[in-house]
């Protein structure tokens, strides 16, 4: 059992959850969502790790390789996360030009 990695994952996801719930500034909410995303990616990579394993590139010198499937999934997830963050920031720019603020308010018309 590798505790430091799992504690880091849990801390990242919880801090992200706190940010999403407690903050009103939409920029900070996006940062918190990115933190949660990082935590989930780290969780996938950590689950796929095998003690003593090397990167899954065959060259005949190693007997043990880590699981390649979570790495492929996370490779995908990072790029998707980046593009989604860019789109969210663009929508935030639009929101700011309409309302003049970055705060989320209930019942706001825009």
């Amino acid at each position: 059992m590798m505790w430091p990695e799992y504690i880091t994952v849990a801390a990242l996801i919880s801090i992200g959850l706190y940010g999403v719930m407690a903050k009103k500034n939409l920029m900070k909410i996006f940062i918190a969502l990115s933190l949660m995303e990082t935590g989930v990616n780290l969780l996938l990579i950590t689950i796929g790790y095998i003690p003593g394993g090397t990167a899954p590139i065959e060259n005949g010198n190693f007997a043990k390789y880590v699981d390649p499937l979570p790495q492929a999934l996370v490779l995908t997830a990072i790029v998707i996360g980046l593009s989604v963050t860019a789109l969210a920031l663009t929508l935030l720019i639009w929101y700011h030009s309409k309302t003049g603020t970055l705060e989320y308010r209930r019942g706001m018309r825009w």
Binding site: A11, L17, A22
Partner: peptide, 12 residues
């Protein structure tokens, strides 16, 4: 928010 996040941390 702090209470909920800490509970989520423990669950995780």
């Amino acid at each position: 928010a702090i209470i909920l996040a800490s509970a989520f941390f423990a669950v995780l």
